[in-house]
Design a binder for these strands. Structure first.
Lengths: 222, 222
DNA sequence: GCAAATTAATGATTTATTCAAG
DNA sequence: CTTGAATAAATCATTAATTTGC
């Protein structure tokens, strides 16, 4: 559990590894490198969690400390082979392509339903979970912002190389919906619905969700 | 960094969360610019709409609407604090008392199961959702940190503020599992399979979770 | 050519801030 | 002003890529 999710991270990814070409040279720049100076007083030590039985499927958590490992029961799963060990989602080319398309289309913080839909769709190309979609947008958005900041800082020209991107940050706040947890709640509450795209319209109808069509935040400021 | 295994990625146990406490003082207090100035060029407008045939996903609905929609179900409750028209959770005295007790007991970032449990318990005193519990801990923790920071800052005059802060945060760290998303994931990840029950228990058994019985963290460390 | 060692990306989490209801 | 709710920034951690010594 804890993550059962992870547990089944199958990824079927059999297909080729997908090169991220889609995004074209993503960030390339030097990584600020975070510096791990940490603090003088910082003592990582601790750790806590002592060994715990790891569920057969390897979930992601395992990281440090002893492995206790005795967990027999090894993968009682039927297809032992499959990707058993992967811990994190590894998007396929198609998945990335779709996500980027959506992003370019203006989507920044999809809400629960949107995520469900997207996940359902992307699921056709490989194993995926809602959280992956969520994180993808979060990260993509953040990194774009970051990149831009870096760029602008360097250039200083303020030419707004990518005005479009700017929109991202502004949008986020504007409406309160997309919120993160929202989807969580939502999922908690009801998850089943996934169907086809049609469903979307249904939602729309009763939930007043506006359609995508840009026009985004007219509201902006606060 | 980067250097791989340095740390020995040994596996540990299920679920553990590894907290990055190591870094303790991460963000240096004042965050450079962020503020809402956002980007100079921020012009939401455009949004790159070059017609994109974006899959009809819906965009986030305006906050008001969303809220309204979501509360319809709230009604009909016979609970004390009927929050009929309220949009946000309004904890009852009992709920707060319990939460604080847990907090004092050392709980900081409850995991999915813990949250579920707590929510269930608190539900006896009034309407409540898992996210409320989650947020409560998040906020309580953050505010305590904040307060502490402020205090220390005032007293020490910039004298190694870091250390003090570090200390503060360290406490918070306590246990690491609870990851936040855990629950979300969990919920997202098909709940149908409850196969994991046993797993859960297993987990529970060895991993804290005793929720209520305070006593909790004996671990606390640091 | 190849596998260990390194580095660049980027998925996943946590913490800091901000927003806004009451 | 307090605090529930939500988002963005900072980090951490793991895997894809790339480099390097044989």
């Amino acid at each position: 559990m804890a993550t059962a999710w992870e547990a089944m991270n199958v990824q079927q990814a059999a297909e080729t590894r997908w090169e991220h070409e889609a995004s074209t040279v993503r960030c390339k720049r030097l990584r600020p490198l975070t510096l791990s100076l940490s603090t003088p007083a910082a003592t990582p030590s601790s750790e806590s969690n002592s060994g715990i039985a790891t569920p057969t499927f390897i979930r992601c958590p395992p990281r440090k400390a002893a492995e206790a490992a005795q967990q027999q029961q090894a993968t009682a799963e039927a297809m032992p082979q499959a990707q058993v060990g992967s811990t994190r989602w590894n998007p396929t080319q198609e998945q990335i392509a779709i996500l980027e398309m959506l992003y370019r289309g203006g989507m920044r913080t999809p809400n629960a339903q949107q995520i469900e839909h997207i996940t359902a769709q992307l699921g056709r190309y490989g194993k995926i979970e809602g959280k992956n979609v969520f994180y993808w947008f979060q990260n993509h958005k953040a990194r774009e912002r970051q990149k831009q900041k870096r760029t602008s800082g360097a250039l200083t020209l303020g030419l707004t190389t990518t005005t479009t991107i700017a929109a991202a940050s502004s949008t986020a706040k504007g409406e309160g919906e997309g919120c993160f947890f929202k989807r969580k709640c939502r999922s908690w509450a009801l998850q089943s619905l996934d169907l086809e795209e049609e469903e979307r319209s249904r939602f729309q109808a009763d939930k007043t969700l506006e359609l995508f069509p840009l026009h985004p935040e007219a509201k902006e400021e606060r």
